[in-house]
Computed example of a mutant assay.
Amino acid sequence: MSLYAQENTTEQKKSQEWAAELKLANTAKEDKIKSLIFTHLIAVKEWHNSHPISTVPAGINPYTGNRLTDMDRSIIADSARPDSIHSNLMTGLRQELDKQQVAFILDKYTIGKVDFTLKGYKAIVPDLTAVEEQTIRKNLEEARERAIDYKSIKQVSAIFEIYKNKCEAYLNANGRNWRQLFKEYVTKVKAEKENQKK
């Protein structure tokens, strides 16, 4: 009996639901996708559980000089996993699915953070150009693929934060003032809320 057949876990339920939502109309292909996702989720969980933050020394971040947080140490521990955990999933998905279907599965892992975050950028920068949007989407899609190898949604958010910083640095380097744009957006949202109360 396979590992998949023996388990009745959150990972199994996720793999079943996500594969089913693709509506492939091909049982063999759907089973392959289920197996790929399940194997990956289990590998991520097992690596995470066997590499607690205590395996990473409580030093400093050499970039900022700040002490490593528990989240920093968790990300470091989990990022040391074998590359094969990631590549086995991605190679398998790309062999079986088209680009849009692969993106759908990655969105399931990351609870749709690409579109949600991009929507936020469009709200904060209303005159976002096509080139800016394309660059930001590319960064967020990289974040999404990297984030699938982390167990908790807090870790996923931390990975996206790395790429959001890249997006904001890109905007600043291309004539935008991110801090000012964000401040104006917050002021606008507050004013709208106040008007709704009246």
Rank of each mutant, 00 (worst) to 15 (best):
G59Q: 07
A58E: 13
E46K: 12
S79N: 06
N26Y: 02
L106P: 10
S74W: 00
A43T: 05
P82M: 01
M90Y: 02
K99M: 10
T39G: 13
G65A: 08
L97C: 15
K99I: 05
P82I: 07
L24D: 02
T91F: 05
I60A: 03
K99Q: 10
I42F: 06
H86G: 13
G65W: 04
D70M: 01
L36V: 06
L41M: 14
T39V: 06
A43F: 02
N26K: 02
I85E: 08
L106W: 02
H40L: 11
S50Q: 12
N26Q: 07
M90E: 07
L41A: 12
I76G: 10
T64I: 02
H86Q: 06
I42P: 15
T64K: 07
I105Q: 01
N61D: 05
S74Q: 02
S79E: 04
I60M: 08
E30I: 03
K99V: 04
A77N: 13
V102D: 00
I37A: 01
M71E: 13
D98H: 13
K34P: 15
K23M: 06
N61K: 02
A25N: 10
I42A: 11
I60R: 05
D72A: 00
F38A: 15
E46G: 11
Y63Q: 12
I76V: 13
D70I: 00
H48N: 12
T39L: 03
F104Q: 06
L93R: 02
D78P: 15
V44Q: 04
G65M: 05
A103Q: 12
Q101V: 03
A25Q: 03
L36A: 05
F38W: 14
F38H: 15
V102N: 01
G92A: 03
Y63C: 08
Y109M: 15
L41K: 12
A103G: 13
L68Y: 04
M90A: 02
R67L: 04
K34A: 02
S74C: 03
N26D: 12
D31A: 13
A58N: 13
F38C: 14
G65S: 06
H86V: 12
D98F: 15
A58I: 04
I33L: 13
L106M: 06
T91K: 09
V56I: 09
L97P: 15
D31F: 07
S50H: 11
K29L: 01
S87H: 01
S87D: 04
I33E: 06
R73G: 05
N88Q: 09
R81N: 10
A103N: 14
P52C: 11
K32N: 14
K45T: 07
L89S: 13
L89R: 12
G92M: 04
I42E: 11
E46M: 10
I53V: 10
T39P: 05
T69F: 04
I60Y: 09
A103W: 08
G92P: 12
L106D: 05
W47F: 14
E21H: 02
K108H: 12
H40T: 08
S79G: 03
D107N: 04
H40N: 14
A43Y: 03
S79C: 00
T27W: 07
I75G: 00
